[in-house]
């Protein structure tokens, strides 16, 4: 089942073409990596999927619906966690989860919150203000928030950036098990190529707002004459045109 279907998506900022004619789909249970150097258009694409940025052209369908026609229904079924957005730091862990649970109209919210606190090892921090949490605890809270509505499409923009390897590993495991249990689709951006190789079933390499390469992260480097994903990434970042040709 196709969860996300993007066709010919573009975004222009006056003369700048941030995203140009991007098309791809994400199936249920799939984790798709969006890769590319800074400014390649990854966050712009995620923002357009989330509905906080209006595309200049093309279409985005989430479970067969468009943001223009069914914004509320779509927003109920997607969620995100991004390195640049946190839950309010002056509210406690419990207060944050309550507020986001109410925003997504979660039935049996108390039960859901208790389950999330236990799953993300946040029970002892339930009354701690989010601003007092360590980076790892904050990452777990952001992830708990992003799973509160059991999204069918989860958008993760560098979810493990600034985390130590042990916590980053825990986060990856949580996402993997969530996807396996629910069949949710995930779009994942990261600059950690090992992580992408480990997590993603498919990757899309973006450069200057276009998809340059797409395929299995384990076979794509060889197909393009590179030893590994990191080498391929560097080649894309430095010489996108030579890769294209």
């Amino acid at each position: 089942m196709t969860i996300l279907d993007i066709k010919n998506l573009s975004k222009n900022y006056q003369e700048i073409e941030a995203v140009q004619g991007v098309s791809f789909t994400v199936e249920a249970g799939e984790i798709v990596g969006l890769l590319g150097p800074n400014g390649a258009g990854k966050t712009t694409i995620i923002s357009m999927i989330l509905g906080i940025l209006e595309p200049s052209g093309g279409s985005i369908e989430i479970m067969g619906r468009t943001m223009a026609a069914d914004a509320e229904e779509i927003c109920r079924n997607i969620n995100f966690s991004a390195v640049y957005t946190h839950v309010p730091s002056n509210l406690s862990v419990l207060q944050n989860l309550k507020i986001f649970g109410m925003l997504y109209d979660i039935p049996d919210l108390s039960g859901k919150i208790e389950a999330l606190l236990a799953e993300f090892d946040l029970v002892q921090f339930r009354n701690t203000k989010a601003g007092f949490l360590s980076s790892g605890e904050m990452a777990r809270l952001n992830l708990a928030k992003s799973l509160i509505n059991e999204p069918k499409l989860l958008l993760l923009d560098e979810p493990t950036a600034s985390l130590d390897p042990a916590i980053a590993g825990d986060v990856r495991e949580k996402i993997r098990s969530y996807t396996q249990q629910t069949g949710a689709a995930v779009v994942w951006t990261s600059h950690n190529m090992k992580e992408i190789e480990n997590m993603c079933t498919r990757v899309l390499f973006l450069s200057r707002g276009r998809i340059l390469l797409a395929g299995d992260p384990r076979t794509l480097p060889r197909k393009n004459g590179k030893n590994d994903l990191e080498e391929l990434f560097i080649a894309v970042a430095r010489e996108p045109l030579s890769i294209n040709n």
């Binding site: 906080i52 927003c75 957005t85 309010p88």
Partner: peptide, 18 residues
């Protein structure tokens, strides 16, 4: 302003909140 200072606007506007 509280929502701006706490970088919370995206969380709110990406949710079903109108």
């Amino acid at each position: 302003l509280e929502d701006i200072w706490s970088n919370n606007l995206i969380n709110f506007f990406a949710s079903p909140l109108k």
